[in-house]
Each structure stands twice: as structure tokens, then as C-alpha cells.
Amino acid sequence: MAGFDKRVASYEEAMEGIESGMTVIAGGFGLCGIPENLIAEIKRRGVKDLTVVSNNCGVDGFGLGVLLEDHQISKIIASYVGENAMFEQQMLNNEIDVVLTPQGTLAEKMRAGGAGIPAFYTATGYGTPIGDGKEVRVFDGRHYILEEAIKGDFAIVKGWKADRYGNVMYRHTAQNFNPMAATAGKITVVEVEEIVEPGELEPSQIHTPGIYVDRIIQGTFEKRIEKRTVRS
């Protein structure tokens, strides 16, 4: 039983073992469903030279954007990096290496990384700069490029509810990249809004089974909204 209790008592403990030079895969889309307290803990620790894999890089002062303030990120693999002036500045100064990756390819790279598939063929990016230098094969008369999987030293994930076994459910579109990220870390850390008793989560409704998860922590979240849009 204790062997399956993934709960940790503090954010310090949650990110124990992270070191400069590591690769961190982060869930989230824009500011939605981001592991905001785990990111804050990485900032607090001051580790540098990180490779970050995430769809976006937050905004100035929030989300992964806070890791730019002390130049903790040396490389980012992402599909969209707008909305962030500090990021743009560091990119233009060549302080940060940016590998722009199509969003679906990025999701599949994480999924493949967690699923033991080292690479896959996709038509996405063929004939564009993304396909340059990549192996091409033709299947059924169509061109595909070979894309390699991504694994992380750490995966940091934001869930909604979890039990101490590490079973996780996500809420609404805060799911996004989190389930794939959760599978692709050597150490996967999930922060959630609520840790419930085992049995409370309906087994067939669990998004991330606990086998992928190493550490669970309950936190409180700001959940900042990037583009609040309402109908009149």
C-alpha cells in the first residue's frame, strides 16, 4: 500500500532531483491547465540550462514565462511562442534555442516518448522547413517525414483530481497536453486541485492511470485567463 502512495508533502519534495541541464516536459495550452506551482518551484530552485518541451512558453510573468526571467531555459521545443515579449527578446539575442514544432507532431512526440515508440512518420510538415533534413518515405503515394519521440527527465503535469495511487482526471480543456506529458517523464510529477480517497474516481473515467505517475501533490491555483471573452 505504502509503495503506491505517490503523495508528497511539499513542492520542494515534488521537484526533488531536478538539476541544471535537464529536459522538462510541461502540460498546458496557453495558460490553461499549466502546472503553475511546479513551475514556481523550478524558478525557486534556480536550475539553469533547461530544455523545456511545452506547447507554449507562458506569458511575461506567468506560467513558463517566469523561467525566462532568470535565464533558466536554454532550449524550448514548442508550437507557438507568441504573447511573450521577454521570450522574443531572448530568442532574438540567441540566448535561447527555439525548435518550433507543429502542434500535432509535438503531442505525438510526447505520446510516442511515453509509449515506447522511438519515431513515427507524419505528413505534417512535408515540403516545409520543418521537413528539412528529415527522412522521407512514401506510403500509398503520399510523402511522410520521420519525427522522433521526446522523453523528459521530468514531466510536470496539472490535473484536477487524483487519488494517492496517482490516478488522475483532468477538467475540461485543461486536459490538452497533460496526459501525454504524464507518460513521457522519467519522473512524472502531477499537481492537482484535490486528492480524493481511492475508489472515489470512477476507474473507467481516469485519464492518466497511476502507473505513469511518480509524485502527486495538492495545490491551489491562480488559473489566470489569457483572453477572457464573453458574449453580451
Binding site: F29, G30, R171, H172, T173, A174, K223, E226, R228, V230
Partner: peptide, 21 residues
Amino acid sequence: GRFPTEEEVDADMINAGKQTV
């Protein structure tokens, strides 16, 4: 669906343009 009313706004419910929906 439609954009939310003020009461319906939910940070966990966005579209690909990052707007609340």
C-alpha cells in the same frame, strides 16, 4: 459552443485561440 456569459467564464474552458468558450 458560444462565448460564455460573465457567470459562465471558466479558466479551464478555452478554445485554440485561448479565448474562454
